[in-house]
């Protein structure tokens, strides 16, 4: 992943323009460099680490669900908000998808529609609570997180729902449409490209940044911030719904007690990727790199058979280094004081 990004950028621009790009995107360059260094380190320690079998099934596949959640929440975080409900929201969407697709014998594609619709609905609800009830995002989405967890248990009757009657369901994540790249990984990168487009080339993206940079000023300039907030949280929900579909395809079942804590892994990926929790700043590519750094690190530590307890500690330290490093760089660049 990292090498292809580098290759295309260096082909497109050259000379001074290239240096200017590097300077402008220095945060990303550091993140990619970090990813490359970590990757190289594990490859050196244990060559099997960089085998395609490990990269595809071990690293990329384990990034899919967290990665999709991270891409979705990037929008919310850029507005200066947060969405704690994406973990159990995934659970609820997964259960709803299973409930309808398995229970009503619906075709495979309808799972995407159902999952993403409910995801968007949950997101819109979050947005409405924040925009109209004026609840802080942390509180509103904490409430949704709890409610979603409960509803998932209620609707499923506490029983995992299997997709064994839906032909090809598991291939949504584990099949191979292109070469030997797992479909789940294709979905992640496809979704990331769409998200990049929305964030950088559409009015939604412009307002996402505007609200995060200065919500009051945006409001005063006549933008209906409330409506856009609902839309942005709903957009995040779309990715949550998609993550739910991929998760059930990975597991072959919708598990009613899985998903709590996934929101924190997604948030960690976003902040490692250089998006500021204060809002107004962030990139989709950074988020993907952040998710990959987390996945590479976890996978590498497992391959090296580092004791589990220490794996958690190392991940914690890396989060601190990543964010601290980013802050130091920005301070030098005069972006923050």
């Amino acid at each position: 992943m990292s090498t292809t990004v580098k290759a295309t950028t260096s082909e497109e621009v050259s000379g001074n323009k290239f240096m200017a790009l590097i300077r402008r995107e220095i945060g990303q360059v550091f993140a990619i460099a970090g990813l490359v260094i970590i990757f190289a380190f594990f490859s050196f320690m244990k060559p099997v680490f960089y085998s395609w079998a490990n990269v595809s099934n071990g690293i990329l596949m384990s990034t899919t669900v967290t990665g999709l959640l991270a891409v979705g929440i990037t929008f919310v975080i850029i507005t200066g908000g947060i969405d704690l409900s994406i973990g159990t929201g995934t659970t609820l969407c997964a259960i709803l998808v299973a409930h309808y697709v398995v229970g009503w014998h619906l075709p495979l594609w309808s799972g995407f529609v159902i999952g993403m619709s409910f995801g968007a609905l949950i997101g819109a609800l979050n947005g409405a609570m924040i925009a109209f009830l004026k609840l802080p995002p942390f509180i509103a989405t904490l409430a949704t997180m709890k409610a979603a967890q409960g509803l998932a248990l209620i609707i499923s009757h506490l029983t995992p729902i299997r997709f064994d009657t839906v032909k090809g369901w598991e291939s949504i994540a584990q099949g191979n449409l292109i070469g030997s790249i797992p479909n789940g990984v294709l979905i992640l990168f496809g979704a990331a490209i769409v998200a990049w487009f929305i964030l950088n080339r559409t009015v939604i993206g412009r307002y996402t940044f505007a609200i995060g940079s200065n919500g009051e000023a945006t409001k005063l300039s006549g933008v209906k911030v409330e409506r856009w907030l609902i839309l942005i949280y709903a957009l995040c929900g779309l990715f949550v719904g998609l993550a739910a579909v991929v998760l059930t395809a990975r597991l072959g079942a919708a598990e009613p007690d899985l998903g709590l804590g996934y929101e924190l892994e997604a948030i960690a990926a976003v902040i490692i990727g250089g998006t500021s929790l204060l809002g107004g700043k962030g990139t989709i590519s950074g988020t993907i790199i952040g998710a990959l750094i987390m996945a590479v690190l976890t996978n590498g530590l497992r391959i090296l058979q580092v004791q589990q307890e220490w794996q958690y500690v190392v991940v914690g330290i890396v989060i601190v280094i990543a964010v601290f490093g980013d802050n130091v760089r920005r301070r030098r660049a005069g972006e923050i004081s």
Binding site: F49, N54, N57, L247, R250, L251, L258, N299, R302, I303
Partner: peptide
């Protein structure tokens, strides 16, 4: 966690 278990076992199978 099924998903974490899957990731861990995938890694062990590779190495």
């Amino acid at each position: 966690d099924n998903q974490k278990a899957q990731d861990i076992v995938s890694t062990v199978l590779v190495s």
